[in-house]
């Protein structure tokens, strides 16, 4: 009898349950889906926050995640080359694959025939667009559209969540802009070419990269050039993703007397970073504290 009453209560009060199964290739997407889908969506991710999203092992356990999913959200632009094999391995013919880059203003799209002599150049442009918070807004809207299309009856629920999230994000965007204002025009060396969107948003001068070419390991001769560059330009910090080895940047820092700022570029990249907003807070605070 109690069970029947409970079931009736659920029916009457409309207590919701997750009805869309989503997999996100990265934890940044995972966080945005959680914000917009909330309890109407069951979401999981593939690349952990402390992993390089370019290189993810094609594990059957990820295929299991995709097997029963309705939607796979991915960054696109060739970042997750591994995702096609997971999709095939999942054998899920009903899976919708949503590329969140479709409405992004893409940067560094090669106007030449890219080949491996340029390193890991992405032929469709630089895919690290989530590092610009303005692009997080676009991603959130794409996620809202896909979820609404999957479950029309929840459209207004998703819209409300989207609006709430965008409102919160807007406040943070203003705060981040204000914090980063003193950094504008300052030169920084980055480890990998994944900071173009971030640097342009905040007017940072990208003076160089620890990697001689995207995806190519640092070399002693390149390090020597960077030491000269650091001294001549008065560069104060090297900013790097925390999943790369810091031995070359640390060596540079010792030689040139500057600091290495190691930050996560994904949610859960370090303990305590549990959302996109917390991640951006952390990155911006670290840069501001160390460069000024």
């Amino acid at each position: 009898m109690k069970k029947i009453i409970l079931l009736l209560l659920i029916a009457v009060t409309g207590i919701s349950y997750a009805n869309i199964k989503v997999v996100a290739t990265t934890t940044v997407i995972y966080d945005l889906v959680k914000e917009i889908g909330k309890d109407k969506v069951m979401v999981d991710f593939i690349a952990r926050g402390d992993q390089d999203p370019h290189f993810i092992d094609v594990l059957p356990s990820y295929m299991i995640k995709l097997r029963n999913a309705d939607i796979l959200f991915r960054i696109g632009m060739g970042l997750e080359m591994w995702s096609d094999q997971l999709i095939d391995g999942s054998r899920n013919s009903n899976l919708k694959v949503i590329d969140l880059s479709s409405n992004i203003q893409k940067k560094e799209v090669p106007n030449f025939k890219p080949d491996a002599s340029y390193g890991d150049v992405h032929p469709f442009g630089n895919p690290h667009y989530w590092m610009d918070p303005e692009n997080a807004r676009i991603m959130a809207k794409e996620i809202y559209k896909a979820l609404s299309s999957e479950s029309n009856r929840d459209e207004s629920y998703f819209k409300k969540n989207l609006d709430n999230y965008l409102s919160e994000l807007e406040k943070k965007i203003i705060e981040w802009k204000s914090k980063m204002a003193p950094v504008q025009g300052k030169p920084i060396i980055f480890f990998h070419a994944s900071w173009i969107y971030f640097a342009e948003r905040y007017g940072i001068i990208t003076s160089g990269f620890v990697e001689p070419k995207p995806g190519i390991s640092p070399s002693p001769s390149h390090n020597a050039e960077l030491v000269q560059l650091i001294k001549s330009k008065g560069i104060k910090i090297i900013v790097m993703e925390n999943y790369y080895s810091d031995s070359a940047p640390n060596q540079l820092a010792r030689l040139a007397g500057i600091k290495v700022v190691k930050v996560p570029t994904a949610v859960y990249g370090v303990r305590g970073i549990n959302s996109y907003i917390e991640m951006m807070d952390y990155i911006i605070n670290q840069i501001v504290q160390n460069i000024l």
Binding site: D57, V58, L59, P60, M81, W82, D84, Q85, G89
Partner: peptide
């Protein structure tokens, strides 16, 4: 070329 990594 684009020969893909083998799965696990």
């Amino acid at each position: 070329g684009p020969h893909k990594a083998h799965p696990f």
